[in-house]
């Protein structure tokens, strides 16, 4: 195999590497979903951490009902697509970060992060509770003990592409009986695009 790696070939390989590095750097710097570089984990220096009250106290706070809120959202009927919870007949109500932000600041909702634990620890919206979809069944008893079924929940994941927030919202409403579950379809990408900085956590909530 060594005989096949001739000098011209190695030169071409080096050129591909350089081109990829340059394109990657240019794209990353211009993308709203780009990565902080070098090595700064997202939001290591967060000024927004003050938004997050201690999660253990959430269930003690008076949580007003959101049912009278005027929220612009589209509810689209769904079929019984693969992976979806079949007990439901409609998608959960969608909310934008601009709507969620004041409610979160007033402790009127609980923000639920549906991504896996490592993603949550790498960076999450301040105040969000980690409830990974793949561990939902295992974590739900503990979640029940902290957040009663009338707690207004807003579930998010990575971005509009990920879809697991919707899966989890449907499961929380249909399977586990939560009465007011919504999703933030834009996820952490929408929140990051709004200029916010993530909280890094190495402890599971």
């Amino acid at each position: 195999m060594n005989g096949m790696l001739t000098k011209p070939l190695l030169r071409e390989m080096r050129n591909i590497l350089l081109a990829a590095a340059l394109l990657g750097a240019a794209y990353n710097s211009s993308s709203p979903l780009g990565i902080n570089f070098p090595g700064a984990k997202p939001g290591a220096a967060s000024g927004a951490a003050g938004l997050a009250p201690p999660p253990a106290l959430f269930h003690q706070l008076p949580i007003p009902s959101l049912h009278n809120e005027t929220i612009t959202a589209t509810v689209i009927p769904i079929g019984s697509g693969e992976g979806r919870v079949s007990e439901t007949s409609a998608l959960p109500v969608a909310m934008a970060w601009a709507q969620i932000k004041p409610m979160l600041a007033q402790h009127r909702i609980i923000l639920v992060d549906a991504r896996n634990q490592l993603s949550y620890e790498a960076g999450h919206i301040p105040g969000a509770i980690s409830l990974p979809l793949n561990l939902l069944n295992a974590r739900i008893p503990q979640f029940f003990s902290q957040y009663p079924k009338d707690t207004p929940l807003v579930v998010y994941c990575e971005s509009i592409r990920c879809g697991i927030a919707q899966e989890e919202a449907i499961a929380l409403a249909a399977k586990y009986g939560y009465q007011d579950v919504r999703v933030m379809p834009g996820g952490i990408a929408e929140w990051r695009a709004a200029g916010s900085t993530a909280v890094v956590s190495m402890q599971a909530h």
């Binding site: 990565i35 070098p38 490592l118 993603s119 790498a122």
Partner: peptide
């Protein structure tokens, strides 16, 4: 390329002995 942050998060899941940069 649609979501570099999600890919970065996926890489973290491999728990490779590599520095963050």
């Amino acid at each position: 390329l649609g979501n570099l942050q999600a890919f970065y998060n996926a890489l973290l899941g491999y728990q490779l002995p590599l520095a963050s940069p």
